[in-house]
Computed example of a mutant assay.
Amino acid sequence: MQVEHILGNIKDIDTTHLEIDRVQVDWYDTRKKIARLSSQNGQVIAMKLAQVPKGGLNDGDILFLDTHRAIIISILPTWVLSMQPIDWDTMITLCYEIGNLHIPLFYDKNTMELQAPFEMPLQRICQKRGIAFEKKWCVLDSQNRINLTSPLMREPKLTQSPHFGIKLCKKD
């Protein structure tokens, strides 16, 4: 089966009458445009996307849909370092160190945590700098990846809020 377009996300449709077949993908493969995948039921999929979604494939993206069956992307869980900066100095230090190591950074809106794929050098830096962290087993979904490369924003402007929320806007 050849797939050229993402048909939406399973979270946005009624699935009570559908058989769900999952294609398991690691978080670091979600930005691939071309891949040969196999579903849990053995369906071989040749994915050649005409246009890759902006941040990559998301958990629950639909590759195939008919009246009885849906084939969806299921991002595999992985070990992550989950960090909750307590102040702006910690946030700045953490972002600097993560950027220096070229590690992708994810933001969990539900728990207000910054998450990065587990890397021992990052854990050592957190321990050395006194940044609280927890090692967790969870899914790193592309829609939660922090990405500052946008054609509309040449220099992002960060605004501080009392709840450590990050808001990006175009610089005046």
Rank of each mutant, 00 (worst) to 15 (best):
Q2A: 04
I6N: 10
I6D: 11
L7F: 10
L7S: 11
N9C: 01
I10R: 08
K11C: 05
I13Q: 09
T15D: 11
L18D: 05
D21I: 03
V23W: 04
V25Y: 02
V25P: 07
Y28V: 00
D29I: 00
D29Y: 00
D29F: 00
T30M: 03
T30H: 01
R31T: 03
R31W: 01
K32G: 00
I34C: 09
I34P: 11
A35S: 13
S38W: 00
N41D: 14
Q43H: 09
M47A: 05
M47S: 04
K48W: 07
K48C: 10
L49R: 02
A50Q: 13
Q51R: 08
P53C: 08
P53G: 06
K54E: 15
K54N: 12
G56N: 06
L57T: 03
L57Y: 02
D59I: 02
G60M: 04
D61V: 03
D61N: 10
I62L: 12
L63R: 09
L63V: 11
F64H: 12
D66L: 08
D66Y: 07
T67M: 14
T67G: 11
H68C: 08
H68P: 07
A70F: 06
I72A: 04
I75H: 08
L76T: 14
L76Y: 05
P77E: 09
P77D: 10
T78W: 07
T78C: 13
T78Y: 07
W79G: 01
W79Q: 08
V80A: 04
V80W: 02
L81I: 11
L81R: 04
S82F: 01
M91L: 10
I92N: 08
T93F: 02
T93E: 14
T93R: 07
Y96R: 11
Y96V: 06
E97P: 07
I98P: 11
I98Y: 03
N100S: 12
N100R: 14
I103G: 07
I103Q: 11
P104V: 02
F106Y: 15
Y107G: 04
Y107F: 12
Y107R: 09
Y107C: 06
K109T: 10
N110T: 15
E113Y: 03
E113S: 03
L114C: 02
A116T: 15
P117I: 02
E119R: 10
M120N: 12
P121D: 04
L122E: 06
R124G: 04
I125G: 01
Q127E: 12
K128W: 01
K128D: 04
R129F: 00
G130N: 01
I131G: 00
A132G: 12
A132N: 15
E134K: 10
E134R: 12
L140W: 04
Q143G: 04
N144Y: 06
N144M: 02
R145C: 08
I146A: 03
N147E: 10
T149V: 07
S150E: 15
P151W: 05
L152A: 09
M153C: 13
E155Q: 15
P156Y: 06
L158P: 15
L158R: 10
L158A: 12
T159Q: 14
P162T: 12
H163F: 09
H163L: 09
G165P: 14
G165R: 13
G165D: 13
I166T: 15
K167E: 13
K167V: 13
K167Q: 14
K167M: 12
K167I: 12
C169K: 15
C169F: 15
C169T: 15
K170I: 14
K171Y: 13
D172L: 07
D172T: 10
